[in-house]
Nucleic acid binder design. Structure first.
Lengths: 98, 98
DNA sequence: ATAATAATTAGACATCGGCCTAATTAAGCG
DNA sequence: CGCTTAATTAGGCCGATGTCTAATTATTAT
């Protein structure tokens, strides 16, 4: 359960910010790159790490690549944290259907 | 908001396991170290990282040092993940009293 | 086919991180 | 005090990680 990859992936601030930018929908690699003071290859590397951890999806559309948030793996992290706290806001468990 | 330290801290499997062992109460450094195939100094290093991230508390009692889980920072991680998902199991916000 | 644009892959470089052994601090006991 | 036990600090080693420039792939348009 829960490979180490997601945790490694979110340990970098740039990558967490990328995920944050994807909260409200897909964005192209270029769009994302614009928000950071970093070269495109460096950004590309971060995308690859997030992709490898399955935290984001990607699809090509013409020349551009659209990245999107994969909430499934984020939920794993969430579950890990909740389990640590021992409870807090879990239990019941049927309110995730929306 | 949310320094990088907690995320770096939980990016290591050994440290996550340490946190897991502390779920049910305090443990001494020695107790914790026993569970891992690693030297005590290495374990001590992990404790220091967790402490620095404020994920654990520590208090000396005689020769031993007792470590305990600090759920406050874990909740920050939880909040970050929930915010990413956009909802999921937050909302209402007063259910943390149970 | 050539050129332009979007993005990645390749490779180098410096720093960070995790692990080890050896030495040190801290506390308890004869 | 001198010895033992619990744990940390110091310092070195080496692989992993983040960043950059240069080169490459993929797509579209002229």
């Amino acid at each position: 359960m829960s490979s180490n990859q997601p945790f490694k992936a979110i340990s970098d601030p740039t990558r967490r910010e990328i995920l944050g930018l994807l909260r409200h929908g897909e964005k192209t690699a270029g769009d994302l790159a614009e928000h950071f003071d970093m070269t495109k290859p460096s950004m590309s590397h971060h995308f690859a790490v997030l992709k490898e951890a399955d935290l984001i999806t990607s699809r090509r559309e013409g020349q551009q690549i659209w990245y999107g948030l994969n909430t499934t793996v984020v939920q794993d992290v969430l579950a890990w944290a909740m389990d640590l706290i021992g409870d807090g806001k879990k239990r019941g468990g049927s309110d995730d259907s929306e």
